[in-house]
């Protein structure tokens, strides 16, 4: 029986789809049979980020409506064993995600997979609520920036009240915080919220800190989940996050600034003032 993970944020553009694609790929790399499901009906993008946009024939909504079987709509990844993508419809809207239909598809996926990763649309409306409804765990993607933190706080409340687990009085969704687009240089200059600041406000366990990295855009240009790029720091940070999800204790190596000679000698303050 699969664990259902929702990747959500409230705010748009913080890296939900990148995270869903990359984290799902990371789970499959660990040997788990994983399906990544696009809930962003009408604004389909997961297929593009995963590099399978030209292989979409049937989609999530076709399966809900009974126009296709689940295994006709699932796209098997050509690079990683056990990784599948369920694309969504580009032409329908969020109303197509009726609760019974979503329940049927999620139920079928759960029977056949180890992990089902749901890529939530932005916002808190029906699409986002459908994506989180069946979740067992949640990854809340947050940028170190005021509007993103505020929206994440709102999502924390929705995850606690609007899920199937909440409605049926089961144990709550296990929530994880993933901070993305983190820039240690700007943090050092006092221009960006620190990891500790965000943690203090959102009070969630930290799954990972993904540094701002050019490789994320480059990976999306080519449709390669960034975790498959060998030399990317963002890819490494995502690998760490997957390992933490599996229960490993790993240092948050991308959360702290690189220590230069001046810092180690205790001249860091002086150096920064002069710079």
């Amino acid at each position: 029986m699969a664990t259902v993970i929702v990747v959500t944020s409230g705010k748009g553009g913080v890296g939900k789809t990148t995270t869903a694609a990359t984290f799902g790929t990371g789970l499959a790399l660990q040997g788990f049979k994983t399906a990544v499901v696009d809930f962003d009906v009408g604004l389909r993008n997961l297929d593009l980020i995963m590099g399978c946009e030209r292989r979409v024939v049937f989609d999530f909504i076709d399966v809900i409506n009974g126009n296709a079987r689940l295994n006709q709509a699932l796209i098997k990844d050509k690079r990683v064993d056990g990784l599948y993508v369920l694309p969504t419809s580009q032409t329908r809207d969020k109303d197509a995600l009726d609760r019974a239909g979503v329940a049927k598809v999620i139920g079928e996926l759960k029977a056949d997979f180890d992990y089902v990763v749901c890529d939530s649309p932005a916002g808190i409306e029906q699409g986002a609520q459908s994506a989180l409804y069946y979740a067992d765990e949640a990854i809340i993607v947050t940028n170190p920036e005021v509007s993103s933190v505020r929206d994440s706080d709102r999502m924390v409340g929705l995850l606690a009240s609007k899920s199937k687990r909440a409605e049926e009085g089961e144990s709550p969704i296990k929530q994880h915080l993933l901070i993305t687009r983190y820039d240690t240089d700007r943090v050092k200059r006092g221009e960006m919220l620190k990891v500790d600041d965000v943690l203090e406000m959102l009070a969630l366990p930290l799954l990972g800190v993904i540094p701002e990295s050019k490789s994320v855009l480059q990976a999306s240009n080519t449709g390669t989940p960034v975790i498959l790029e060998d030399k990317s720091v963002a890819g490494e940070a995502y690998r760490d996050a997957v390992a933490r999800f599996m229960g490993e204790q790993i240092e948050y190596r991308f959360a702290s600034e690189k220590k230069g000679l001046m810092n180690r000698l205790g001249f860091g303050r002086l150096w920064r003032r002069g710079a």
Binding site: V146, D153, V187, R189, G190, E191, L193, D197, M201
Partner: peptide, 14 residues
Amino acid sequence: RSADQAKERLQVLL
């Protein structure tokens, strides 16, 4: 620093 202001504003708001 602006990050401190961000934190202060967020804490009150949240």
